[in-house]
Design a binder for these strands. Structure first.
Lengths: 190, 190, 190, 190
DNA sequence: GATGAATGAGTGTTCATTCAT
DNA sequence: CATGAATGAACACTCATTCAT
């Protein structure tokens, strides 16, 4: 397994995402993914150790991409609310632009494959955000209730509302996104 | 003539849930499910049309059970906040008691199998809840922002916080649950 | 395996013929035959020892029926040619009336199941015909060339021409049938 | 990369023919055919789309082979009777040499699989023969009675007489074959 | 590095037959 | 007598992976 051709590797990521979203993990065989990527099944084993490695790498890749999009306009010197609003908007922008990445990562993280990811590897991408929340708690702007609860109200809703499988009726317009942010902020603000 | 055995059907539901939670949809073969339920693979096809039917039936079954638990103490004459708090608590109680049902339904509803469920069949179980939200909107107690956004802040967090895969650090204590409800209510209240 | 209900047995014969003609031996399962006959699969085993017995019995039954139709107007005192022409016509009449029987018996006799039939049991039905041929040979009216060759020219063509799978273009009109008989007779006559 | 092995494909054809003749279509499973050909069942699917494709290809292959044998000494400049006699003899020679091909093709063409063959693909192999018959009709040497009837008397008897299942008593000697041709010719000649 | 061929083990499903009623 | 339930074995076919080139 040596990496040579980045174009091929990227094609494999895209093929995996497309196929898993279309037919699910259960039906996404190596042969089908290879066909979708227009390479031989055998070639996959040059780029990845095995199927599991391909799937996990695809997920981690998405998560990295996602964190970069989210933190693109991150400026820790702004007021907390503004920081979060910018994160919120950038994240929805990303969801709009790459719904297929969102769909894949939801399906992946709710499957037993998720256990194979080294959690810390992914969490580190999002560390700056946690630090903002902590500052908000320290400054008595945000409720002092633990990260788990806070993220359940300011980040998970992004996923829920972006999930076309769950929210068929939520239009991703700027107005709706800002409205939803009001609720998120009301939830966590002191 | 032997008679149909409801015990066997229930055993199949339980075996399906247990196995899917342990090894995921992709790896849960009919043969393995049958073995877990201690029956012949062929027998499954007496109780269900095919594998898909087994999986979907298991899900709908859980959803029905879940709705009954949630609406157990439903009393539409109480104040809106109290109604929602009771729902919230009953739902968390259910999650605590049957984490395996929650885990299965999360995995199921985020897989392509979800598309096979007739949505209306499941939604009807939860209709009384939507009516409460509507009343809250009409009485200017709840923000007028559409069901999708509201449920993203008062019901999806229950799932997120109950999801042992996502929230490893959230303890399902009464105190934590009530704290979380405060955020939910702050999010949706006017 | 005791025979009680002739109606049910006949229904089984008909179901077998219909199904085998439609989907072939390979796909004609006991369960499907039972369904077609509107009885339980288990009931088949009251009337027949096993699937093989059902198929063979169906065939022998048809052959018996066929011989009766063929010999209906048999009159050994007529001239040889007339006897054969009457046989020929009656046989085509039978083919027209019961194409499904012909189709089944062709498929059956060209499958390895045919080996399971006790040949003598079937041949005895057609014995009078062989005696006519012998008389024709003795009286120097028919070529002295062995039964195998003679039947290949005066009986097998009936099957060939009645076989809708082989002869798509041959219309079973009286005129065509009589024309074909001319050829058969020319073949065997001295 | 290993290269495709024509020996393997031919082995599959032979295994199919051998097995179908021995145990019939109904019992000839992919696994058994693979075992007979000494390859893995999975390998069959590299050479053929599915079981049906294997069976149909085997049949078409035989028919092609058969037509070549039949037309080997074809010379359209000879008198009609001589042309047909040569065809007749070559065909019987082929039957003698490859009784297993005959047996297979009889069983195949009388099974529902026959419907899957594109008729034209097979018929074109035998076209020169039909042209001879037409010439015979035009020259008033052969009865003007339609191809269906003519072939029922000059080609189907070859199959009947070669069929060891039907004709147990017909010896494929030159003398018998010529005798039989006399009957065939008497049948169709004017 | 890249590939189609090859395969043992597995897939979901149906089989002929028997069982318990 | 008649049945639907039950099943081990088999079905056609696909799997993830390795091999030879």
């Amino acid at each position: 397994m040596r990496i040579r051709d980045d174009v091929k590797q990227e094609a494999l990521f895209q093929a995996t995402i497309k196929l898993v979203n279309k037919i699910g993990f259960a039906s996404s065989s190596v042969a089908k993914i290879a066909k979708e990527a227009r390479i031989s099944p055998a070639t996959i084993y040059i780029y990845f150790k095995n199927k599991e490695d391909l799937l996990v790498s695809t997920y981690v890749n998405i998560k990295h991409d996602m964190s970069e999009a989210m933190l693109k306009n991150f400026n820790k010197n702004l007021p907390i609310r503004d920081i979060l609003k910018i994160l919120w908007r950038d994240m929805f922008a990303y969801s709009s632009k790459h719904p297929e990445y969102i769909e894949f990562s939801i399906q992946f993280s709710n499957s037993p494959f998720a256990d194979l990811v080294v959690k810390k590897d992914v969490e580190k991408y999002f560390e700056p955000i946690l630090m903002v929340l902590q500052r908000g708690i320290d400054e008595k702007i945000i409720k002092n209730v633990g990260y788990e609860i806070l993220t359940a109200f300011i980040f998970h809703p992004i996923i829920s509302l972006s999930n076309r499988k769950i929210c068929t009726g939520f239009e991703l317009s700027d107005k709706n996104i800002d409205t939803a942010f009001t609720l998120a902020w009301d939830a966590i603000k002191l």
